[in-house]
Amino acid sequence: MAFLNQWAYIGGSIILILIGLFGVLTRRNLIKIVVSIGIMDTGVNLLLVSLGYINGGLAPILTATNPTNNLNFVDPLPQALVLTAIVIGVAILALALSIVIKIYENNNTLQIDEIRGLKL
């Protein structure tokens, strides 16, 4: 159980990143590659947030029930970075998908080994 306590979040998100990387390397379909990039994105965000967690910590917001700054808050800095990274991520995925649409209109296929100019 101690092993799970230490590794569940960090290990799970690293496994998510690795599954995404495997998908990018081996899949042939362009949309599957973009889906794999999305999986890597989620994994990285979860990893960054879990690096800022403190056992028994509180959400980093002052409220009427948590009124002072001496309480045990979790680290707010990774959360602020991940917040913007998620919004950037969806814009990047949309840009990638628009390029996929254009490739499909020009080549009439989604398989990367059938696209002209990318053949090995």
Binding site: Y9, N45, G52, Y53, V74, Q79, L83
Partner: peptide
Amino acid sequence: LKAPDVAMTEAII
């Protein structure tokens, strides 16, 4: 993980 801001963003987006 006590990150309600990030949870909101991830759920919506």
